[in-house]
């Protein structure tokens, strides 16, 4: 887990200070808990609600 977090960030050329690694892991665990509820829900009726404006939005 620790390696994965560091690998993802280093892969983006972002240096992670040593003292951030444990808190990042804890935050990630909390995030996975929240995600569990989301994964259990079906959103078939809801798209992401973005609107595309053909021709751009600056007339």
């Amino acid at each position: 887990m620790e390696n994965e977090i560091v690998k993802v960030l280093e892969g983006k050329n972002i240096k992670v200070p040593e003292h951030h690694i444990q808190p990042l892991m804890a935050q990630w665990q909390g995030y996975l808990q929240l995600k569990k509820n989301v994964d259990a829900v079906k959103h078939a009726d809801f798209d992401i609600g973005l609107k595309h404006v053909p021709g751009g939005d600056r007339q």
């Binding site: 993802v8 951030h20 990042l24 995030y31 989301v38 959103h43 992401i48 609600g49």
Partner: peptide, 18 residues
């Protein structure tokens, strides 16, 4: 740093929730 870890798939799920 934390925001860099989240996938595009999860971002889109968040927009569905929204």
């Amino acid at each position: 740093e934390f925001g860099e870890l989240i996938s595009a798939v999860d971002y889109l799920k968040a927009q569905q929730i929204r």
